[in-house]
Design a protein around this nucleic acid. Structure first.
Lengths: 201, 201
DNA sequence: GTCTATAAAGCGATAGAC
DNA sequence: GTCTATCGCTTTATAGAC
């Protein structure tokens, strides 16, 4: 592995700036409302230059997803892994995703767009990282089920899907927009709802 | 109130057919991917004729939302109201929304589209029915909190938002697409997750 | 009210000069 | 690799005949 040249570093920095802008726009407006013109404008380059780095709008979205998956994996490897109980690790990850969403840094993609879906499943970077994260979380879920901390009636895959879904739960956005909860209050409340349910214990 | 003329009945039937098509397309592809051309094609009339009935694409979506809100209100007034416990009424409503979603009849709108949001809040029919349903559910939520069935740590409005959110929870679509759960299994599982939480009791 | 035809605008993507 | 300029297509919405 050679040290990257100065030229390569500049290129990498520019691509980071692009992914930054895409991430912000995806979190703010969503995939359909995000225009490639807006991305170019926010980065401060011409649209045609964007297409020298990424071949399509879908590839831009995939790059943003790859980065958030990397951030999630990094959180799992450090802070979450430091907790002794599997259930607490899962809660920590869920809490982290909600903080990311609150900060306006959670790119959420429409599940229904088929063009986008095809591009994502064909994207090696994206799929590899998605599966790596799923496997890591899957281990913790099974461990938590084994020691009786997670409900045995909910299949492991349903737990996993639910965690992904709560990372983009629109309820948090509504609470933030309402303005009557602090970040900590809102997230604690949703975490409780997710793990302990709406019904009294 | 006069009896509607034959002409008015035909018109009403046509508008019902339009709302049917919009509802199906919204549930299937979402608002952004739904084109007015597709609606016209599915109804079997020309696009220009559509605009004689509804003034915009947003108005079409609002009409579909109005109808599902009416259906929800009707369910609340009959089957849910027949249950003695407020918590059971809320569970029945949540279960009903999941059945609607499973059947591909739940029109779900993007929370981020600002043009659509403006049109909806300006739509009297939509807002009136949304508020009527929210009030009805709000009464049951407060009753369930009062008798200790709902967690006192989750504010009533958060419970309400959560119920609306679970009505469009993408997890159900994933489980249906996976094909390894029956409708009853998937919905029971998600209901459990929603009211009892992921953690063991 | 229904149709055909078209206007008007937005957007993803590319050509070609530098 | 970056730019300006533009293509080609889709989509919402409307004009005007019947």
């Amino acid at each position: 592995m050679n040290k990257p040249s100065f030229r390569e570093q500049v290129l990498q920095a520019r691509e980071d700036a692009i992914v930054d802008a895409v991430n912000r726009l995806l979190a703010d407006k969503g995939f359909d409302a995000m225009t490639v013109d807006a991305v170019a404008a926010e980065v401060g380059i011409a649209k045609a230059s964007l297409y020298k780095h990424f071949e399509s709008k879908e590839a831009l979205a995939a790059a943003a997803m790859v980065r958030v998956l990397e951030r999630a994996q990094a959180f799992c490897d450090t802070e979450a892994a430091a907790l002794p109980q599997p259930l607490d690790r899962l809660k920590a990850v869920a809490r982290w995703t909600m903080h990311v969403q609150w900060a306006g840094e959670m790119p959420s993609l429409p599940a229904q767009n088929s063009t986008l879906r095809s591009a994502l499943v064909a994207n090696r970077d994206y799929m590899d990282r998605l599966m790596a994260l799923s496997e890591r979380l899957g281990e913790w879920i099974e461990a938590a089920q084994a020691d009786g901390a997670l409900s045995p009636e909910v299949p492991a895959e349903v737990v996993l899907y639910t965690l992904f879904s709560r990372a983009c739960d629109p309820v948090l956005g509504v609470l933030k927009a309402g303005g009557s909860y602090t970040e900590e209050q809102a997230i604690s409340c949703l975490l409780r709802t997710c793990f302990d349910g709406l019904a009294a214990r």
